[in-house]
Design a protein around this nucleic acid. Structure first.
Ligand SMILES: [Mn+2]
Ligand SMILES: [Mn+2]
Ligand SMILES: [Zn+2]
Ligand SMILES: [Zn+2]
Lengths: 136, 136
DNA sequence: TTACAAATCGTAATGATTACGATATGATGA
DNA sequence: TCATCATATCGTAATCATTACGATTTGTAA
């Protein structure tokens, strides 16, 4: 997702423009991988010495609700990244070292739906973890 | 996994037999689904009024290390269940209401390994969430 | 029955996340 | 430009799951 697109979503939805919000988006744009709330707090603390947890989490949740960020749970901690932008449903390899991802185009649900007659399927999670070539 | 098998593992590995340990195994045996540390604490508190968190978590981790329990993270909280016993690698549908599972025999990794030349793949997670027929 | 390592207790610490009253600040229109 | 006001942020405490640890108890083997 592009930064401008994200800022447009905020404006269209009636949220205010703030420099912190732009910095948060810039952070995720340059990081290009899954990052935690505390990663973001460390980054913003350089510029805004007294930044509040409330600001961090409120904006992370807002951006997630607006589909600007996507999230996953890794090792008991929520991680965030800019939404992919692809519009077809897909999954990810995630590098445990740098947090960067590689798309997995095929979805395993297609192969197994037939085995769940009588079940209500709400969602699913398929993620592959390891090390990317540059971290190896 | 059978209770007797679990108790044998404990004995063979040199761990002591305690009534609490047997009660923990009985709990997971009768529950037949993913349960949290706090589910277990509530259950054991009926019989052992002052049971310690240390006892709960120490035994959960021990049983997991001995492959008596398997674990997954649901909604930011670790859940435990008796190990399946199947020896072929597989995945699970998990009912969000009762925690019971249904095996998924096929593993999506088989189809996509070829796309990860140059990557080190450490592990993967594939879980399907929803409601089982009896919870519907 | 004794001895001792293992297990448990009681309770505090930790770390991520949430909560909330007080204050500051973007956006809007007069 | 200024006044207004809803939104955003701050400062800080609370919450929740999990971990930590010294003191005490207990299972096991000699
Ligand atoms: Mn993607
Ligand atoms: Mn199974
Ligand atoms: Zn990497
Ligand atoms: Zn169910």
């Amino acid at each position: 997702m592009q930064l401008e697109q994200a800022l447009t979503i905020l404006k269209d939805e009636g949220y205010k423009y703030t420099e912190k919000r732009e910095d948060i988006l810039n952070f995720f744009n340059k990081e290009d991988g899954y990052r935690t709330a505390s990663d973001l707090l460390n980054y913003l603390s350089k510029k805004y010495s007294g930044i509040s947890y409330d600001t961090i989490y409120r904006n992370l949740h807002l951006f997630h609700d607006l589909n600007i960020l996507e999230t996953t749970e890794l090792g008991g901690e929520k991680h965030f990244r800019l939404s992919c932008g692809h519009d077809e449903h897909h999954h990810h390899f995630i590098c445990k070292s740098c947090g960067k991802t590689k798309a997995i185009e095929s979805c395993p649900m297609n192969h197994i739906r037939q085995n769940f007659d009588g079940y209500y399927i709400e969602n699913h999670k398929f993620e592959v973890y390891g090390l990317c070539p540059s971290c190896l």
